[in-house]
Simulated scan of single mutants.
Amino acid sequence: MLESAKVAVVVPAYNEARLIARALSGIPSFVDRVVVVDDASTDDTAREAARAGDARVEVVRHARNRGVGAAIATGTRVAFDRGADVAAVMAGDAQMDPSDLERVVAPVARGEFDYCKGDRLSHPSVRRTMPPHRWIANHVLSRLTHLATGIPVRDSQCGYAAISRSAARRVELERMWPGYGYPNDLLGRAAAAGLRVGEVTVRPIYADEESGIGIRHGLVVIPLLLARTAITRHLS
């Protein structure tokens, strides 16, 4: 528990057999439950997660690949069904620093925010760590997300986040965009629901993991999602 709140961590994973154990090994002791959602991996992701030796870990498997947003929605639903008050998301590729988890979760556990996101772009090491093309793309997409949602978000694409039980219900996570682009759709839903959204600085980590986000997502999918959000916002 943290701040008297039961905390769950949701770990979406697709073909992360090589890195899932590393991702799970650092999850802090204040976390009550860990829900790994294997999004129909074709490798041993589920087996490696189950073999992590952590009694808190529950593995849920999609019968077909549905996308990272859908995996997060599934894991969050399971976490709240199991009694969590706050659900946080940590990637299955060990790209999120476990030491930042308390910083992300605490404002939600204390009731200061309904939804709290990580912000890598404000970290002093970001220019050294984040590949230049990603740094530029994240700044552009964050600006577009701010314009579309009205939320002054600094790092819209960071998936390190925490949400309260009531907030998850209000934004209807099960209807969230199922693939990459889900952070932008979720921020649009948060704005429409009037959620209190905050950001905290987290450390950017880039090593030998592979990103599933391609040019199509950055140039087509996410802009279309944001256009839909902007139109809905201005018509409401």
Score class of each variant (00 low, 15 high):
H146W: 14
Y115N: 04
D93Q: 00
H234S: 13
A148P: 10
S125A: 13
L101V: 04
I20W: 02
A46K: 00
Y160D: 06
S156C: 09
D185E: 12
A63E: 14
I215F: 11
D119P: 03
D185L: 12
V35D: 05
S29I: 08
A91S: 15
A207F: 09
F80P: 02
P178R: 01
L101P: 12
G26E: 02
A5S: 12
A52E: 03
S99T: 11
I222A: 10
V197N: 04
P28C: 06
S25T: 09
R47Q: 01
V57M: 07
R66S: 01
R120Y: 09
A23N: 04
R47N: 01
R110H: 12
A52V: 08
Y180S: 08
Y14R: 13
L187T: 00
A13V: 05
L101G: 04
F113K: 11
A46S: 14
L187V: 01
A55Y: 08
N184G: 00
A40S: 13
R51D: 12
P178I: 03
C158F: 11
R64N: 03
V60S: 10
A230D: 05
C116R: 06
A109I: 11
D208M: 04
D43I: 00
V126P: 01
S211W: 10
C158K: 07
R33H: 11
C116E: 00
D44C: 04
T145L: 06
A94K: 08
P223I: 02
R128W: 07
R66M: 11
V220F: 05
V140W: 03
W177Q: 08
R61F: 00
N65D: 00
R66Y: 07
R189A: 10
I231R: 11
A230M: 10
D32A: 15
D185M: 02
T74P: 05
R143L: 12
L235A: 13
E172H: 14
H146I: 00
G26A: 07
P12K: 04
A63Y: 02
A190H: 03
G75M: 06
R216E: 14
E199Y: 13
S4L: 13
L224T: 12
L2Q: 11
A55D: 15
V105Y: 10
R196N: 10
I163F: 03
H62V: 04
V78L: 11
T229V: 15
Y160A: 12
P28Q: 07
V78R: 15
R175D: 11
V221A: 12
R66H: 02
G188W: 07
L19V: 09
D43P: 02
G159W: 01
A63D: 14
V59S: 13
G67F: 07
H133V: 11
G179D: 05
A84P: 10
P178T: 01
I205L: 15
E210Q: 15
H217N: 14
G69T: 06
D93Y: 01
S156D: 08
H234G: 03
R120V: 14
R196L: 10
L101Y: 02
G118T: 10
H234I: 09
G26Q: 05
L195Q: 10
D54F: 04
I136Q: 07
G92A: 08
P132K: 09
A162T: 04
V78T: 04
D38C: 07
R170N: 05
K6P: 02
I213T: 15
R128S: 05
